[in-house]
Amino acid sequence: MSVTGMTRREWLLSDAPLTRRQARLGALYQGWLTFRANKLAMFGLVILILLIGMAILAPWIAPQSPFAQNLAGRLAPPSAEHWLGTDALGRDILSRLIHGSRITLFIVGTVALIAPIIGLFIGTVAGFAGGWIDQVLMRITDIFLAFPKLILALAFVAALGPSIGNAVLALALTAWPPYARLARAETLTVRNADFIAAARLQGAGPMRLLVRHIWPLCISSLIVRVALDMAGIILSAAGLGFLGLGAQPPMPEWGAMISDGRAYILDFWWVAAMPGLAIFIVSLAFNLLGDGLRDVLDPKGDKS
């Protein structure tokens, strides 16, 4: 570090940061310390890092191809050769789970990117513009909120045709309204703040105010909300997959794998049990992470 006689930790925790960068990094470090004290949240983080690593390295760490069929060895119980057993077509379940993590991460990642951005845009525009624009946008949001989410997603996918892309779209279309509400509430609290007036006096147009001044303020509460919603997104995505409306066979999507195992549940339980366990562990990890992040970024809110 540039300052002599000071450890990096002291530099980060300094009460009187010398530069904006030091202040920002210091705040991040403080947040990290709070987060790290939460053992469960750390546990969630570790699992998710492992999951991401698994998805990246899938072709190298999966013991077999996720598509290689072996009808002679179908529905084999867990063994040394197939740690988690094989499915109805003799495919290695562990390898399919490992490859399936890519699909899960893809769906969750995309939905968690699209929905908050739609919500952020609609919510901040509504809150910032006010008047009839606000009225119309919020009415639309309310209508979507009043809808049964899963059924709406079902109807969307049915209309667009089942595929992984349409599943993502349907989930995003049903997931944005809470973000819009949140972003609007945040916007209303800062809309009349002096610093916005100051920026306006400097000649900033509405678009610039929105993008440079209001959006950054909404981000942290949106992140918390996204982290808490991740588990729900995973579960909904798996539900769509289970109904055959997400990734199509032979792709190793976890929800679809449970659906494959459903017919054999009474005699060959592992076929359905293993992917379900994987879904449970990952969404648990997201819930733990979300709790931890909330403690750091938004200490007031309680889980609702």
Partner: peptide, 14 residues
């Protein structure tokens, strides 16, 4: 909050 409902149902049936 973390459990896929359809999976828990299957396990319950089992």
């Amino acid at each position: 909050y973390s459990m896929p409902i359809f999976w828990l149902g299957l396990m319950g049936l089992l």
